[in-house]
Amino acid sequence: MANFKDWLKETFKALSPARVGEYIQESQVYRSIFRVGVPDSDRKRMLVMLGNVFLHLHPVKVRKSGIRMRYTWCMGGITFFLFLSLTFTGLLLMFYYRPTLEYAYVDIRDLREQVPLGIMREIHRWGAHAMVIAVWLHMYRVFMTGSYKPPREFNWNVGVILLVLTLLLSFTGYLLPWDQLAIWAITVGSNMARATPFAGHEGPGSALLKLGDIAFVNNQSDMRFALLGGRFVGEAALLRFYVLHCVGLPLVAGFLMAIHFWRIRRDGGISGPL
């Protein structure tokens, strides 16, 4: 009996959170993943920053003023995080959504009414809106603090492209619900492509691009056609936008984001008066 009591006591002791934690941290598996352990000393904290693939985008030490919220407004971080959550929710939505004329609309309707966690669509949509605003404000802040100035000219340019990509991501996603709001917003938006100088059939100069009587730029060969894959917003446009929205643009954006973050470090961290 006493034996059993001891055994019980020992067991409980062994199972106490502290001990379990210790046990886990000493295990080979854990150590193989987290080299440094709990960053409880400054040395370890530095090692964490150096050893972690995600964290190493940050320098080990940062300028105090550079991480002040009143200075950064945290807008870059928010934009990036919104991008991540949009990727996540978007991935979940892709399980249910089929980009065909038959199903696009009804799938969204089902997401709204029946599919468990269909609320992901709300998060996705509102997140997208928020990201557009956040990315504008980020640019606003960077301008207002003059942070585009040397040596950060290039990163500013990467940022501008990222801003454009954000708008394009949002624009391509706008079509996918395939409701009146979507199709007409895209129609209005893409109608502008019709007027591209030289490359749009209603743009100035397009009439000049012809051999004899054969016009090269017509409504089946212009910018808008290329954008929509057709003369109007139809199934081809839906598929095209879907692929751009889910694969093409996020890939490019991700690639540029990596550059953007890298350049922050290379260009001397978050800006600040020197």
């Binding site: 150096l50 190493h56 040596p151 290379r266 001397g268 008066p273 020197l274």
Partner: peptide, 17 residues
């Protein structure tokens, strides 16, 4: 990768105002 020095030589260090 703990180097913190901004690109030397690339750009002139902006003068401290």
């Amino acid at each position: 990768m703990s180097s913190e020095t901004p690109n030397e030589g690339g750009h002139k260090k902006p003068p401290i105002p």
